[in-house]
Computed example of a mutant assay.
Amino acid sequence: MPALWTASEKLLLASTSATRLGLLVGAGLSVETQSSNVDERAIEQAAQSEGLDPPALAARLAAEKALAVSSRHPGRIVLGADQVLACGSSVFHKVDDREAARRQLQALSGKSHALHSAGAIAIGGKVVESFVTTAILAMRPLTDEAIDLYLELAGPSVLHSVGVYQYEGLGVHLFDSVEGDHSTVLGLPLLPLLSALRRLGCLSL
């Protein structure tokens, strides 16, 4: 049987995200995962002092993750990815508990926000490819009762998502419209990634 992935070793994803892994496996790629263990908040603070906008921040986070794992495995093709949610002038982060999730959904209710998803490929401790795509999501107006019901139905898994919703699951009920690629919403832009891997000679298709 012909092989789609042609590199000598599997793609190394600098993340333990099940969603990102699922996207890559679904696209037929050979993948292994390893946590980057980077301090995302420290990277964000440094980026803010440099005046980076949300798309550039997403790119910086993806690059730092890729570089962290590439430094440990210099011979591997390493993929870092990250996503930044911006609503107006505010950047939102993952939350620690249900009450914080409730406040975040209240803040996003009835508004449109941007999801900036970035990827970076590092080889030998250098970023050789990087890309950022953006999706615009319009959340419908939500009552407090609707928010509480959603959080009850979705459970603690919402704390793993930057927007405290999981669009690929129950979170789809929260929106009126979405503009952008589905993989961008899920946090890993597949089309620019596949183009980059073709340029690197890793794909036969």
Rank of each mutant, 00 (worst) to 15 (best):
73 H>W: 07
119 G>P: 05
128 V>T: 15
171 G>H: 10
117 S>I: 10
68 A>M: 03
13 L>N: 11
94 K>D: 01
35 S>Q: 14
67 L>V: 04
185 V>I: 13
96 D>G: 02
165 Y>R: 06
202 C>R: 14
150 Y>F: 14
16 T>N: 14
205 L>A: 12
75 G>M: 01
8 S>E: 15
92 F>L: 06
165 Y>V: 04
92 F>C: 03
158 V>M: 05
202 C>W: 09
157 S>N: 05
121 I>Y: 11
103 R>M: 03
150 Y>S: 04
165 Y>G: 05
147 I>C: 11
95 V>K: 00
189 P>S: 09
136 I>E: 05
186 L>H: 05
112 S>G: 07
203 L>G: 07
14 A>V: 11
17 S>C: 14
88 G>D: 00
174 L>I: 08
135 A>F: 10
39 D>R: 14
136 I>A: 07
54 P>Y: 03
25 V>P: 09
82 D>R: 00
70 S>F: 02
159 L>I: 08
128 V>I: 13
127 V>Y: 11
195 S>A: 15
44 E>H: 07
154 A>K: 06
47 A>K: 14
45 Q>G: 06
87 C>G: 00
58 A>M: 06
24 L>A: 14
55 P>Y: 05
2 P>Y: 07
89 S>G: 01
196 A>L: 05
65 K>F: 02
39 D>E: 14
83 Q>L: 00
121 I>N: 11
176 D>S: 15
142 L>R: 05
190 L>P: 00
26 G>I: 13
167 Y>A: 11
144 D>K: 07
112 S>D: 03
102 R>L: 07
